[in-house]
């Protein structure tokens, strides 16, 4: 996966043949699959997008934090707390929009807490993130009551005309709002980081805070704001789980997605589109996995053995695939140079 993060340079300089090759290969594969099993193919692809939504949102959260130089391994916890409180807001108000906004605010608050610990109090950033993860599991587990019900969850919206295109329509243009939002946010974060003054400052602060300081940039303020924005993105990922995907809360329902997000962020070399590629991979493996469990008895004879595998084994597939790809195919990823380091001038 070759994502250029350069700006304002002639992009024709290097043609990303590998990327083009991979994507055309995938497109052909989809066409072939669609010709043989249109329904299953569309189902797998739709589910790929949905499954990848919390992952890409979490990864965007990580990108915002880490590009400004703050490690955030607390995304899992941020998601979980926001998922839980978003769910409660929904129970109390019955208004999905309010509940979603509430989850965003909760994310921002946890983000601010992370910023406070890692920037102002200079707690080791890995520890700060771990604190958030542990707190999240403990608090949501403690306050969770069974039997709470809500009036529902976000449902799909179809964009007229576009949604009628075969395959592409149902996959990209008929989705519930948070999924739509995540697709838009990929572009937004990319533009923010690589095309705006704020993004330039953010990256400068993450690479060389002293240099940013000497041109008058308030290093810690830039970091605070980015970590809070990151918290909101993680909060939206949490909202996706309880307000759009499942519709209710379960203990520890993030189930490692926050950590997968981090893996995907690294896979994507700290770029939004790169991370999206990684998220889709994870989403696809997940979709395939549930499709296999679902269609166990209808598999063609030469694949029948798959149906006999224990379901836990198939359930492992997305994680194994993600790790294998991460370990095997990604070249050396270079994190922002000042990541994890407190900035202090005197």
């Amino acid at each position: 996966m070759q994502i250029t993060e350069r700006m304002a340079r002639p992009s024709a300089a290097r043609i990303p043949w590998v990327t083009i090759g991979v994507w055309s290969g995938l497109a052909i594969l989809v066409l072939v699959a669609y010709a043989r099993a249109p329904l299953a193919t569309t189902a797998v692809l739709t589910s790929t997008i949905r499954q990848s939504t919390p992952i890409i949102l979490g990864a965007l959260a990580g990108i915002m934090c880490e590009r400004s130089g703050v490690i955030n391994i607390g995304i899992e916890g941020m998601m979980l707390i926001a998922a839980f409180l978003g769910f409660l807001f929904n129970v109390w108000t019955g208004d999905l929009l309010l509940a979603t906004l509430g989850a965003l605010l909760v994310g921002a608050a946890v983000g601010a807490f992370h910023a406070l610990m890692s920037i102002t109090l200079k707690v080791d950033q890995i520890i700060a993130g771990t604190v958030i993860n542990i707190l999240a599991v403990g608090l949501t587990g403690y306050f969770y009551q069974q039997g709470l019900t809500t009036r529902g969850k976000w449902s799909s919206v179809s964009i007229p005309l576009l949604a009628d295109i075969p395959v592409v329509g149902p996959v990209f243009f008929s989705n519930p709002p948070i999924t739509f939002a995540s697709l838009i946010l990929i572009v937004v974060v990319h533009v923010l980081l690589f095309r705006t003054a704020w993004g330039l400052r953010t990256r400068a602060v993450g690479e060389h805070p002293a240099a940013a300081d000497t041109v008058g940039i308030a290093v810690n303020r830039v970091r605070y704001i980015n970590v809070i924005i990151g918290g909101m993105l993680a909060g939206l990922a949490g909202a996706f789980l309880t307000l759009e995907s499942v519709g209710s809360f379960e203990r520890n329902m993030t189930n490692g997605r926050g950590f997968v997000s981090l893996a995907v962020m690294i896979f994507g070399k700290w770029t939004p589109f790169g991370a999206w590629g990684g998220s889709l991979l994870f989403g696809f493996a997940n979709a395939l996995q549930s499709q296999i469990q679902f269609l166990k008895n209808q598999l063609p004879p030469w694949l029948a053995w798959i149906g006999d595998l224990p379901p836990q084994f198939i359930g492992m597939l997305p994680y194994v695939l993600t790790i294998a790809v991460l370990a095997g195919f990604v070249g050396r990823a270079r994190p922002p140079a000042a990541i994890g380091k407190v900035y202090q001038k005197e």
Partner: peptide, 20 residues
């Protein structure tokens, strides 16, 4: 030196005094 190595010359120069 106070330059960001992975930025271009122009990016380093405008940093903090961006135009656009």
């Amino acid at each position: 030196f106070m330059l960001v190595p992975v930025f271009t010359v122009a990016e380093n120069i405008i940093l903090g005094a961006e135009t656009g």
